[in-house]
Simulated scan of single mutants.
Amino acid sequence: MRVAVIGTGSAGRALADGFRRIGHDVVTGTRDPEETRGRPEWAEHGDSLVALADAGTGADLVVNATGGMVSLDALAEVDLVGKVLLDVANPLDFSAGFPPTLSVKDTDSLAEQIQRAHPEARVVKALNTVNGAVMVDPARLGAETTIFVAGDDEGARGVVRTLLGELGWSDVVEFTSLDAARGLEMWLPLWVRLMGTLGTADFNLKLIR
């Protein structure tokens, strides 16, 4: 599968490497490929960097791994027509310092804003409740934990569930409406505080039912 990861931060790099590991053809979209290519962390995969306007070309799946406050602007430059869009971003607002607040919550979500801005795309929310390393290697936690999938389109959810299985996720809870992304994104204020208390970002929850 051709995967276009939008975003060059730690989560974007982890996802791009993880998708390559399981055999997918991956490009990473960035505003300035030459500038990004000059960063030390891109020394190994700099040849996979493309401009945002080119990232969606030929992609079967587009992944939004940008910072939530800039997601809409970045995705506005990407061809999303007919694409499954996996949104892993969170609308974290650091303007008042740490811990961050959420720029959207309760009655809306970043995922729904993206869907409204791109009605021709099929948006699925997943993987936003764990850090980048756990996203692509759930076994690193030493026990099975739970990941969530939310989206209006059954076929798009199926694409994402297959990808999650390839990454090693076996306990997947699926929501059949994208508005469930509101709850998934609102998990982040607690996640941030747990990270501070535990002293690590390598953790997740297990849903017992």
Rank of each mutant, 00 (worst) to 15 (best):
R2T: 07
R2P: 06
R2L: 06
A4T: 08
S10L: 14
S10W: 15
G12W: 10
L15A: 15
D17F: 15
G18M: 06
F19A: 05
R21N: 10
R21Q: 09
H24S: 00
V26R: 02
V27T: 01
R31V: 12
D32T: 08
P33T: 12
E34I: 08
E35A: 14
R37D: 11
P40G: 05
P40H: 06
P40I: 04
P40N: 05
W42A: 08
A43N: 07
H45S: 13
H45C: 11
G46L: 13
G46V: 14
D47Y: 13
S48I: 15
S48Y: 15
A53R: 07
A55N: 02
A55D: 00
A55H: 02
T57D: 07
G58E: 06
G58K: 09
A59T: 03
D60S: 10
L61Q: 00
V62W: 04
V62A: 04
A65F: 01
T66L: 05
V70A: 15
S71A: 06
S71V: 04
A76H: 09
V81E: 12
V81F: 09
K83R: 13
V84D: 04
L85Y: 14
L86M: 12
D87L: 13
S95Y: 11
F98W: 14
P99S: 04
P100A: 11
P100I: 08
P100W: 07
S103Q: 07
K105E: 10
T107P: 03
L110V: 03
A111D: 06
Q113A: 11
Q113V: 11
I114H: 01
R116H: 04
P119C: 00
E120T: 10
A121G: 00
R122I: 02
V123W: 01
V124Y: 05
L127S: 11
T129E: 12
T129Y: 10
T129W: 08
N131L: 07
N131M: 09
V136P: 04
R140C: 05
R140K: 05
G142R: 01
A143M: 07
E144M: 14
T145M: 06
V149W: 01
D152C: 06
D153P: 01
A156M: 11
V160K: 03
V160D: 01
R161W: 08
L164V: 11
L167R: 03
L167Y: 03
G168I: 00
S170V: 13
S170R: 14
E174R: 04
E174T: 09
T176G: 15
S177E: 15
L184G: 15
E185F: 10
E185R: 07
M186D: 10
M186L: 12
M186N: 10
L194Q: 07
M195C: 12
T197D: 12
L198E: 05
G199A: 02
G199W: 02
D202G: 02
F203L: 08
L207H: 02
